[in-house]
Design a protein around this nucleic acid. Sequence first.
DNA 1: AGAGTATAGGTAGAACTTCGAGGTATAACG
DNA 2: CGTTATACCTCGAAGTTCTACCTATACTCT
Lengths: 111, 111
Amino acid sequence: MGEARSEFLKGTLDMLILKIVALGPIHGYAIAQRIQQISRDFFQLQQGSLYPALHRLEDRGLLKAEWKMTETGREGKFYALSSKGRKKLEAEVQNWERLTDAVSLILRTAE
Amino acid sequence: MGEARSEFLKGTLDMLILKIVALGPIHGYAIAQRIQQISRDFFQLQQGSLYPALHRLEDRGLLKAEWKMTETGREGKFYALSSKGRKKLEAEVQNWERLTDAVSLILRTAE
DNA sequence: AGAGTATAGGTAGAACTTCGAGGTATAACG
DNA sequence: CGTTATACCTCGAAGTTCTACCTATACTCT
């Protein structure tokens, strides 16, 4: 991620990836594109962040992977959410909302 | 921070500390209490996170420190924002807002 | 007087994440 | 045939936060 972005990205990456995968089976390279596209270029996911994250999520049983052909006729590793991943996503979204609420409380505090 | 919290805290701690200090000179121990109080116990800042963060911010010239007596009659290191710290806080708040907007775009995407 | 708790400061090492920089390989295009 | 886009990957550096510890003073309770 670009420096300014990465400062704040920490901790949200897994949630964002799980969310994109929740929209339907998709391969790694396309996940980065989707995230960049939907966030209107705010997030620019580097491959050095993407692939380790995907492996992490797969190792933890949150994602299932399968090799298939992409739309462009090439091999791609397609990821889908496991039920564990779906629960994790729900929990992370809830936690994200509680976090932003808590941060708002502090930022809006005027002495 | 409690495990669940810390996952998402990354990157926000400096901003929160700067914001609390912006409300008026305050010593380290009291910063942690204020943050916990205002966030309604969502954030429980550990000393092992607090003090290194304060030293970091001081080293970067964002905070100025001065030893004074606390309300309870003890020595405390009081922190205040430098002008550089004030600018940094503004920038971090702006960036935080852009981040939450970008995350919202992704979380609200329904395929 | 002594014990315990809250206040106030701090450090060291581990764990984890992300990034930057590199590598491999195929397909498509000029 | 060279370049660009796609698609996968790894490694090491850098940074942050946490856990676990340490010191010391003030206050409260017995």
